[in-house]
Design a protein around this nucleic acid. Structure first.
Lengths: 358, 358
DNA sequence: CGCCGCCATGTTGGCGCTAACATCAACCGC
DNA sequence: GCGGTTGATGTTAGCGCCAACATGGCGGCG
């Protein structure tokens, strides 16, 4: 390993270099094209002030050598990494995976790349650790995709980097993008009331989750606004299993004719519990979910649910982040009142809802 | 030479104010700790030959300044990026998301980071493009998570980088990690035969997918080996919808008493089709899936399926890649017969299978 | 006691690239 | 035609870090 003639600068300047695997550098291209390195740099960066003929010559030299600019060198020289960090949580959760996918996809349309860090627990420390990793790891901006635990107090991130949080909430200080949960919930609950149900029970997500809380609140307000009674809330953990377990209890309450579940997976468990308890859906009980998984249309019965536009959320997050990165190079320090982008959800009516039994 | 002559303030007259709070560099730490930069470097890289007292002094200086090594500079100097690239496909597919998650997780236990590139189509060109992005983007190794289209011919990747493919197949030239599909399928089909079914129909994945093909072949062989008839195969596209559509046809074949679906989502569609056709599962028809989604235990009825250990697959992929990266620094060029790691699947018996009607 | 080798630490050079300035030719209007 | 432009290109000096060598103190051993 020691020798290898690794310094090509030394001897054999023009002669057949040792051809050792070292990738071609700007200097190689420059030599081949008969220009200076700076000109190669200009071509590589698409600067305008290069003569057309020269540009072509350089380009063909690049192609001939299979030249690719060295990202590390560029980053070192410019101080920018052309890289966006994403902090994400459990990818088994459908929504997280969808958001990640669309973020990656959106970033790919720019000349940035994506570095992903996973957080394994919802603790503040875990988030902070992930953050540290990313800050160390040379990114120019960060997208935090963790709608679960974002206590305003908790998320005080040591970071001079632009940040976007995927979570529609007004309470924290970072720019955010997310579904307008309240609107989706209102549509779902109103749909049930319009069908003639007196009120709607709620199978909520975990209490420490922001979106879960928001959905529960929206459910509550919608019923209140309609002058209906608000039955006690049951809290699951987003899983089908919790939906099933809680569903067994719900099934025993004969007064319940309609249930709004905070996500589709819990709704699935609920459907099974109701089925086993001999309470047919939607004849006896109506069920609405939230998320619109690809599978939900094939549940028994097909699930009425609220569709979330994850693609749009990812796209908007990236747009917002890039926006910040450009406008606030590193200066400012003005977190400026945290722009919030809201993406509209949409009710999808299927077979799990019907008027209550006469 | 150690003097501060390097101050940019001196060189650039009247230039932008020094307001730019540049992050602390190694030199800053060195100055504060009263050592040379090289010693700081040694401490940062955990080299052994540093006096304990010195090390502590440097460490505390680092902490005081909030020093983080600059990845770009390090990469430039060493030629290694400490970064692993992952090429992934549709993250809506449960398996892909799971694999990605476990890869990210496993990488996180090393001091590497992960850069993700998504491929949007199964074409060779798309894969190649993703590859180019990654090669340009400074990674030391690549994991390709696309079990779908990996025609040996197609995947001839211009790359001197170590590669691991997530796909258990002997046909291509890269080291690979994947589930032992054949074994899982054998378990599933045998389970049905043992229950007393004469034969088992197959709802397969798309014909251009390797795992789909492998599963179909394994199904075929298992039946052959048992001396059973092999009914015609139907091909879906992995989606619940395709499972439903094809399921409607299957439901019309009275001779069918057991179906093996190539994944859980299609099995879900199939369950619904059978239900609608008045063919109860498992009393009239038994169904087995593949993947073991978290939701599958709550289908109606709970789905018997083959569990894939995605975590293990991710972990092994990373291990294999790191292994390669260390053993074949840049030399060799010997792709060495493509190691293949196989992860054992496991049959999970639930309520969707039963003996055929007497 | 003098030579050797070992260890902790310092010094030098350069990784590949770009910003900022320097240069040089062509060209402008009056 | 001459100062002043403009546009294309070259030159210089690092960006922050690490590999390789250089140095200098110290103990061991014949």
């Amino acid at each position: 390993m020691a020798q290898d003639g690794k310094r090509r600068a030394g001897a054999t300047p023009g002669a057949s270099a040792a051809a050792r695997a070292r990738p071609p550098s700007m200097a190689d291209v420059a030599a081949l094209a008969g220009v200076s390195g700076q000109t190669v740099s200009r071509v590589a960066n698409n600067r305008s002030n290069v003569d057309e003929a020269t540009r072509e010559r350089v380009l063909s030299a690049m192609k001939m050598l299979g030249y690719r600019p060295n990202t590390a060198a560029r980053a070192l020289a410019t101080g920018r990494f052309r890289m966006i960090g994403v902090v994400t949580f459990d990818l088994r959760a459908h929504g997280n995976a969808r958001v990640l996918e669309s973020v990656v996809s959106a970033v790919q349309d720019t000349d940035y790349s994506v570095s992903v860090v996973a957080v394994r627990s919802h603790s503040e420390q875990a988030v902070r650790e992930a953050f540290d990793r990313l800050s160390t790891q040379a990114v120019d901006g960060i997208i935090v995709n963790e709608p679960q635990m974002l206590d305003t107090a908790a998320l005080r991130l040591r970071s001079d980097l632009p940040i976007v949080v995927v979570d529609r909430d007004d309470r924290h200080r970072y720019p955010a993008v997310g579904s307008d949960d309240a609107e989706g919930v209102r549509a779902a609950v109103t749909h049930l009331l319009d069908l003639g149900h007196h009120t709607v029970a709620h199978l909520a997500g975990p209490q420490d989750s922001y979106p879960a809380r928001r959905r529960a609140e929206a459910w509550h307000r919608t019923l209140k606004d309609a002058g209906r009674l608000t039955p006690p809330v049951d809290y699951g953990d987003w899983s089908a299993e919790s939906g099933y377990l809680i569903g067994r209890q719900i099934a025993e309450r004969p007064d319940v004719t309609a249930v709004f579940a905070a996500n589709d997976q819990m709704a699935l468990g609920l459907l099974r519990a109701l089925h086993e308890a001999g309470r047919p859906v939607p004849d006896d009980v109506s069920v609405v979910g939230f998320d619109n998984l690809a599978e939900s249309a094939y549940f028994l019965p097909p699930l009425t649910t609220v569709n979330q536009d994850f693609e749009e959320i990812g796209r908007q997050s990236v747009a917002l982040l890039l926006d910040q990165m450009e406008s606030a190079p590193a200066e400012g320090t003005a977190p400026r009142g945290a722009a919030a982008v809201s993406v509209a959800p949409r009710l999808v009516v299927r077979g799990s809802t019907a008027p209550p039994r006469a």
